[in-house]
């Protein structure tokens, strides 16, 4: 099994060190200084040049509960590196691959910016980077090449978390996991992380905290997520889909609809031209 992240949201303190470390290591541009008013979250979402995003949920106590029940949730979101990745299936150039660490990686020198991966991600992660957003891109190692060429001269490429492919290649832990001061973000072999995460859910349970793993052993078409999460609220509270669906599963129905409609029209055409002949 490959490498991945276990992001334990009960340990996150919202310091955003992961966001900063990711930007620094991958030389991604800043997101600007816009104030959102959404708690402490001014990053707002993952994007082409934002590969870690700390979500903040300030959740008031229910009316009948003591004020101490107020929840203050933080969660560092990231590309899920799905077992069955919608972006990878959609990619017409083969730019998006599963690398030797079993992670989903965009080869920037092969991506041609068609943009089909963007709406094909069930988690809304991957996005196009247009050159105006992106001053001096460097640091994506793909077979020893960098992507300077890919983004500067082209009309844009798709960007998302590489799971620090370059750091993994030389045996280093990805930048976000390395920087995380509470080990909310843990990097490692996915099987090992699963075992650790399940033990953590049980430990929390014994202390009376309900939690669950998101992206492990769920009965859905995207399969297990190499980057999975321990959550204490429903997925949609963190802007994760409750039920992600692998988009390509709709293709057979679509192609069948095309074939039937086209056959019906061809038959109609044959009848029209025959009848009047």
């Amino acid at each position: 099994m490959g490498s991945g992240f276990f992001t334990d949201t009960t340990l996150c303190i919202g310091c955003k060190a992961c966001e900063v470390a990711c930007k620094q290591w991958n030389q991604l541009p800043a997101d600007g200084y816009e104030f959102s008013g959404n708690s402490y979250d001014n990053t707002l979402e993952l994007g082409g040049t934002t590969w870690r995003h700390v979500a903040f949920v300030e959740q008031p106590a229910p009316a009948d509960a003591p004020p101490a029940d107020t929840k203050w949730l933080m969660m560092s979101d990231v590309c899920k590196h799905c077992t069955h990745a919608g972006c990878m299936e959609a990619c017409p150039t083969g730019a998006i691959i599963r690398n030797e660490f079993d992670d989903v990686f965009v080869q920037p020198d092969i991506c041609n910016g068609c943009g089909y991966c963007v709406p094909s991600c069930p988690f809304g992660v991957i996005d196009l980077i247009v050159p105006a957003d992106y001053d001096a891109p460097r640091g994506f190692v793909s077979d020893g090449r960098t992507n300077d060429d890919a983004t500067q001269r082209h009309g844009g490429v798709a960007g998302k978390c590489t799971l620090c492919y370059d750091r993994q290649k030389i045996g280093l832990v990805p930048a976000c996991a390395k920087a995380c001061p509470t080990e909310s973000i843990q990097f490692g072999d996915v099987d090992e992380l699963h075992a650790r995460a399940k033990a953590r859910v049980e430990a929390l349970q014994s202390r009376g905290v309900s939690s669950y793993l998101y992206g492990v052993g769920e009965n859905n078409t995207v399969g297990d997520l190499n980057a999975f999460f321990l959550l204490t609220e429903k997925p949609e509270a963190y802007n994760l889909p409750e039920r992600p669906v692998l988009p390509s599963t709709r293709q057979p129905a679509g192609y069948a609809a095309v074939a039937i409609t086209a056959a019906a029209l061809a038959l109609a055409g044959w009848a029209v031209f025959r009848r009047h002949a």
Partner: peptide, 22 residues
């Protein structure tokens, strides 16, 4: 996922889009 948790979570994340648009 998340069934059986206390039911006072917000239904969305500040109404932010979950998906990226084409």
């Amino acid at each position: 996922p998340g069934d059986g948790l206390p039911a006072h979570a917000p239904a969305t994340y500040y109404e932010r889009p979950l998906l990226k648009k084409p």
